[in-house]
Design a protein around this nucleic acid. Sequence first.
DNA 1: ACTCGTGTTAGCTG
DNA 2: TCAGCTAACACGAG
Length: 265
Amino acid sequence: MPELPEVELARQVLADALGREVRDVDDHDDWVCRPHAPGDIAAALRGGKLTEAHRRGKTLWCETENADGEPGPNLGLHLGMAGQLRFAGRSGPPGPRRFRGRDEKPEWFRFGLTFADGEQLRLFDTRRLSRVRLDPDLDALGPDAGEVSRTDFRTRVGRGRAPVKARLLDQSVLAGIGNLLADETLWQAAVSPARPVHELTADELTDLHKALRKSLRAAIKHGGVHTGEIIGHRRAGDHCPRCGAEMAHGTVGGRSTWWCTKEQA
DNA sequence: ACTCGTGTTAGCTG
DNA sequence: TCAGCTAACACGAG
């Protein structure tokens, strides 16, 4: 589920946890918490508190403070393909119907923080591809896709010979763009996903940057990337909502890709 | 039964 | 060495 817009909403949930004493930590899932052993994260955080909630691209992390007020390790969270963060008893994130009401089965509970006031922040993930780890390495991430300047965007995305969609999905180039947001951005800019970046003009790169900002703003406002204009048309036999031409399907950069056969030729 | 997938990454190839 | 690609990861949905 999560791309940059969803993760930003998750960050806002996480921000609600700041400043409260951590009474207990459930880090039983050794796959989600790898390479830490069960109990390691609990031992590092118990008695302390989270002090700041940050996000770059799809990666979340919190600064922490131990019981003596000394700086503690950063707590890193990545929601993978299907992770959701929520306080027990509060409503979950917006999203497609199929994700609602089916996401709180006990077996999908992967990680939890219980605070001294009794509230519990929970990570649910059907697919178990979320990651929780101490002091995550952020060096491999490019600048946040929502913050990057037009010039920086053109330099980074325009470098190399890969198909432009592969470049947009590369988290070391820009952090935060996932498969749906890439299709939405390319459709908004009317650029073919398979075009090698070295063939793109400066104008096309500028259009892509504009389209990215527009798509991001709309997705954050409306509750997620699934609200994008082209997303509902990523189906066999469907048509482009702008020109009516048929949608095409294929694999670009290793990911399932849909584009307009006429405008993104 | 069988295929697909809103993400990441180790390992392979040229 | 680097850029790019593929398979694997785990598991529910269609």
